[in-house]
Design a protein around this nucleic acid. Structure first.
Length: 1039
RNA sequence: GGGUUCGUAGCUCAGUUGGUUAGAGCGCUUCGUUUACACCGAAGAGGUCAGAGGUUCGAAUCCUCUCGAACCCACCA
């Protein structure tokens, strides 16, 4: 046996060991022995390429590596797939920050040069991170490494985008979005954070009311007062219009009653700013109000702000207030108003709600071929247990979030990332479309819905059509496109007798299925049919929208610059409102002119002059320009579990076994993976979700980059204490979903443990003849009590650790290995092995070492692999088989008890010596009342440092434990009073416990209700106490 | 405003469906170099399990309330 260093030096072995693993190829499941059949897979949550890993990453890596190594040793075909995330905004910000140091902005460089800079930065980050991942010991399959901007990932992203667009799950819409003026980009709802801030709150006189605001600068164009319908203070003004003196002179204001106004809040009256508030936007939409942009994307005033145009909005507040004061419009100012400021989670800049045209993912819509919407599906797979979230409590959080999820804004106005796979082409000229409704039919007059049943015009309908003809007599249309249903065709004949006519089926009324031609009262609420199809083989309104969308695309191509008249039905016209005017179905239905009978001859639309193409690759032909925006980074991350895998791998490894990540990205990432994957793959992305907590400082602060003194750099502490120690410190004593406090003393403690294992191995390997032992046959019958005891404990450990790991009790399992190794194997068995070895002892030692290394390996891979190698194993520890209990009988409680008595008597002897101040080296004479075996004698003498003698003195102290009854025969030492006091104290304690037990055993309710096993146990205990009490009483008398 | 978690030894934390005298590491006290280890060994002190009720034969564990801390979501004219 080679000489082993006294202390384990991680620096000397870690790199070499990692290389050995990597070279072995076992990180790659394809190279594992054939017996590894059942797949087990984890996809690494891809770290952002924003520099380097932090200690939180190290925790995540430790947990995942433990799971992977455990499963690999259990014979699974394990895949741990590495990758990194381009992290769009975050990465761009890093590079912009660096540029700023040189006094430059990204605009100085231009897009191409800037992206080159980003690329340089990313390559550096990737290198750093790869090295960090390796140095943490992560057994990742590098042959499958992935990046979110890789070609195949990009392809998947685009395919998914296209499919979602075709399915109507991705749309472009004009909405109020969260805009970060610094990032110059939109943010998703959950990318906005809130910060409490004190700011003046202004009360302004606004005509008949007083309104409050913290943001006067947005209120230039407020023209509507909202009050609560039940608010008596304002009853008299509801519905009226006023001329109001305001920031830039007089404006017209009207008063609307809506329950959105909170009577308790402020004055109970508010004005609304539709373009700069989510709530106001909804109100404006509801009441069809004008939506005027006051502040532009640079945070400057638009023309709507009158004389303020072009000024920076946020800086103009005081000036505006001054003007208002001068005008006498300031009622009062509350200086101590505390409100929540919305800020950008990436850069902390105040977020500006802004009206903007963006791409959205519809989370509440049911796509063709799907039974449920994205959010319903995502909710159900968790509810029905297809996905299991650990710890449990996050289910609640998850459901709550899903229930309140709004459509997801996915376009970002930054340069770095997946450019949106949509191309636009300017058509030469716009198409002018005029829509005409067909004349009335008998059905219409009876209040029946015609749908796709095909009645002719009624007499009235014919008259209407002739009237229409007179009105449009002098108009010219290049073509009249009609629905192919009779009522439309007939209207066209009568109204436009001499013009070119084309029929198009796509212009038909909505197919009401079995309700076609039936009375209108049989229909449900109109909004119901937006998502739901009409009964029978009917359509819903989105189906109509799809038909009209296709038709418009053709019209755009076929009639550029022409004037087109359309003669059709109600729902095709509402679809035009949606497609051309950017309304929602709800809006279109509420605003429809028909119920209000405000019909006018001809509704004009200007068909956008661009053609749109959505695809994986750019369309052919000239003049196409790709949408300049990029996708939210979470869009590509949401596909990560499968976009990183080949089709072949997906068949084997998808769904993945577990997603292990921090609870802080449950919404950002986990929820979105579930939504997208269940939709695209028709299966869940993973079966279990294990959420770990955050790493905090010793005092519970968040570690933050901005305060370097609070952070712990994983590499630095790995250098100092060894990677194994760092891994243990992150895992032991932590539980899923709870935060972990980390500090150097803790890591040092685990470093000591690593060293302990090292020295245990050193002792065993230098004491036993490894070659001989590995050839010897083990014989349980020849084992001593101590041998049997440690084997019993070891096997129990194997059983418990396996069970714990199967149930994600990672910390607990680690702690058990730790405790067994130190307090049982090292402190007791090793000492006994020195004092009184049996001829089986070397074999037992060897077995203990092998098993301990295996059990500890997932946690502390480096030192265990190194020791395994030193044991002379040819096979690597990473794929050696996980220990199992070969014979249940080895776990033996009787042996455990007997050994405990032996431990107990030794502790009592040591205790006695300590109490009497006997130096540990000095042996005291002890007389044993009962006959002891040579082994027992030798163990007790060595471990307790005493000496057995043949006779006892008159004056002696008596110590007992189980079968052992000893007299300390050193009369100079014995203090009778002290001994007596001690014994009496012990007696009192035992009696108290005994009494408690007896009263429990006398309790009939206890006997009736408690399980038998418990009762038996208590009885047994009572018996033991009784014996102990007897002995103590005797002892006291003898003294 | 809605929700979640936490409060266990001086510190950091475990404690699986309720069932031994509530545990670990660090720190503390005393003693100790016995050829695996001072990154060690031996012995010890230290807790009304935040508080108050309740359920139960039995509560750190389940329920209600109170106090304290952290976090999440929503809203904030």
């Amino acid at each position: 046996m080679k000489e082993l260093a006294k202390a384990y030096d991680p620096k000397q072995v870690e790199a070499d060991i990692y290389k050995t693993w990597d070279d072995s190829g076992y990180f790659n499941p394809d190279n594992l022995p054939k017996s590894h059949k059942k797949p087990y897979s984890i996809v690494l949550p891809p770290p952002n390429v924003t520099g380097k890993l932090h200690i939180g990453h190290a925790a995540m890596l430790a947990i995942q590596d433990i799971l992977i190594r455990y499963k690999r040793k259990q014979g699974f075909k394990t895949l741990w797939l590495p990758g990194m995330d381009h992290a769009a905004i975050a990465t761009q910000n890093m590079v912009e920050k660096n540029l700023k140091k040189e006094g430059k902005t990204r605009h100085d460089l231009g897009k191409v040069k800037f992206l080159a800079e980003v690329e340089k930065f990313v390559i550096e980050s990737k290198n750093t991170i790869t090295n960090q991942l390796k140095s943490m010991g992560s057994s990742l399959d590098w042959s499958r490494e992935s990046f979110t901007l890789d070609e195949n990932v990009t392809k998947t992203v685009r395919e998914v985008f296209k499919k979602m667009y075709d399915d109507g799950l991705i749309y472009r819409g004009n909405r109020v979005v969260n805009w970060c003026p610094r990032c110059q980009s939109t943010l998703a709802d959950d990318e906005v954070e809130y910060k409490e801030a004190k700011a003046p709150f202004y009360y302004f006189k606004y005509g008949p009311v007083v309104i409050g605001t913290a943001r006067p600068e947005t209120k230039f164009a407020d023209k509507v007062i909202i009050v609560h319908p039940k608010d008596k203070r304002y009853n008299n003004i509801v519905g009226k219009e006023f001329e109001v003196e305001w920031m830039e002179g007089k404006i017209k204001a009207k008063v609307i009653a809506d329950r959105a106004a909170d009577m308790e809040m402020g004055t109970g009256a508010m004005t609304i700013t539709p373009a700069h508030s989510h709530l106001d936007f909804e109100l404006a939409t509801k009441y069809n109000l004008e939506i005027e942009q006051i502040i532009d994307k640079d945070g400057k005033f638009t023309a709507a702000a009158g004389s303020f145009e072009g000024m920076v909005a946020s800086a103009s507040r005081e000036k505006i207030v001054a003007i208002m004061k001068k005008k006498g419009l300031v009622d009062r100012i509350d200086e101590d108003y505390v409100h929540n400021l919305s800020i950008c989670y990436r850069c902390g800049t105040s977020v500006e709600p802004l009206l903007s045209k963006q791409w959205f993912v519809s989370v509440g819509k049911v796509a063709p071929g799907m039974k449920k919407s994205l959010k319903d599906e995502a909710r159900d797979v968790v509810r029905n247990g297809e996905i299991n979230i650990i710890p449990d409590r996050f289910n609640k959080t998850y459901f709550h979030w899903m229930d309140h999820l709004r459509d997801w804004c996915i376009s970002r106005q930054i340069w770095y990332g997946h450019q949106i796979p949509v191309w636009y082409k300017k058509l030469d000229q716009p198409v002018e479309i005029t829509f005409f409704a067909h004349g009335t039919t008998p059905d219409n007059e009876k209040g029946n819905a015609s749908g796709q049943s095909d009645p002719s015009l009624s007499e009235l309908g014919k008259k209407q059509s002739v009237e229409l003809g007179k009105i449009v007599k002098n108009k010219h249309y290049d073509v009249i496109i009609t629905s192919d249903l009779s009522r439309a065709v007939e209207t066209a004949e009568l109204a436009f007798p001499n013009m070119k006519k084309v029929q198009d089926k796509r212009l038909r009324e909505c197919d009401y299925g079995s309700l076609n031609g039936k009375p209108g009262k049989l229909f449900k609420d109109m909004n119901y049919y937006i998502e739901h199809k009409h009964p029978g083989k009917g359509e819903n309104y989105k189906d109509v929208e799809q038909r009209i969308k296709n038709l418009l695309a053709d019209i755009g191509k076929d009639y550029p610059g022409k004037k087109v008249a359309i003669i059709s039905h109600k729902f095709p016209q509402l679809a035009l409102e949606i497609l051309i005017n950017g309304k929602t179905w709800e809006q279109a239905i509420t605003e429809d002119w028909r119920p209000k009978k405000t019909w006018k001859p001809g509704w004009n639309y200007l068909l956008e002059t661009t053609d749109t193409y959505i695809g994986v690759t750019a369309p052919s032909g000239k003049g196409w320009q790709q949408d300049p925006d990029t996708l939210d980074t979470w869009f590509s991350s949401a596909l990560w579990t499968f976009s990183t895998m080949s089709t072949k791998d997906q068949k084997i490894f998808h769904p993945t076994s577990v997603m292990e990540t921090g609870y802080d990205i449950l919404f950002f990432w986990v929820a979105r993976m579930i939504m997208m994957t269940t939709y695209i793959k028709k299966e869940v992305p993973f079966k279990d979700v294990y959420l770990h907590g955050l790493i905090r400082t010793k005092t519970g602060e968040k570690m933050s980059k901005s305060k370097p003194e609070t952070t712990i750099d994983p590499l630095e502490v790995s250098q100092k204490f060894g990677t194994d120690a760092v891994r243990l410190s992150l895992v032991i004593g932590s539980t899923p979903g709870n935060d972990v406090r980390l500090y150097e003393e803790k890591i040092a403690g685990y470093r000591n443990f690593i060293n302990k294992i090292w020295n245990i191995s050193r002792y065993i390997l230098t004491t036993i003849d490894v070659e001989k032992v590995s050839k010897q046959k083990f014989d349980y019958k020849k084992c001593s009590l101590s041998d049997q005891w440690i084997l019993s404990r070891l096997n129990r450990l194997i059983r418990e650790v396996t069970e714990d790991l199967d149930n994600y009790r990672i910390g607990q399992a680690g702690e058990k290995v730790f405790a067994f190794t130190w307090s049982e194997l090292a402190d007791w068995y090793l000492e006994i092995a020195k004092a009184a070895p049996s001829d089986q002892t070397p074999l037992v030692l060897y077995a203990c070492l092998e098993n301990i290394l295996s059990l500890a390996h997932p946690y502390i891979p480096f030192v265990t692999e190194q020791l395994w190698r030193m044991m002379g194993h040819q096979e690597l520890l990473i794929i050696s088989k996980w220990p199992w209990v070969s014979d249940k009988k080895i776990i033996n409680e009787k042996i455990d008890r007997e050994f405990r008595d032996l431990q107990d008597i030794i502790v009592k002897l040591r205790n006695f010596k300590a109490e009497y101040g006997v130096p540990p080296v000095k042996k005291i004479p002890v007389f044993a009342k009962n006959v002891l075996s040579d082994a027992e004698k030798s163990i007790i003498e060595k471990l307790a440092r005493i000496e057995f003698v043949d006779s006892k003195n008159e004056k002696s102290a008596n110590l007992t434990s189980g079968k052992y009854s000893f007299h300390i025969s050193n009369e100079d030492l014995i203090d009778v009073e002290k001994e007596k006091a001690k014994a009496e104290k012990e007696l009192a304690e035992k009696k108290k416990l005994y009494q408690a037990l007896i009263s429990r055993l006398d309790n009939k309710a206890f006997l009736a209700n408690a399980p038998e096993a418990i009762v038996a146990k208590e009885k047994e205990k009572a018996k033991q106490y009784q014996e102990a009490i007897n002995k103590l009483e005797k002892k006291i008398i003898n003294l």
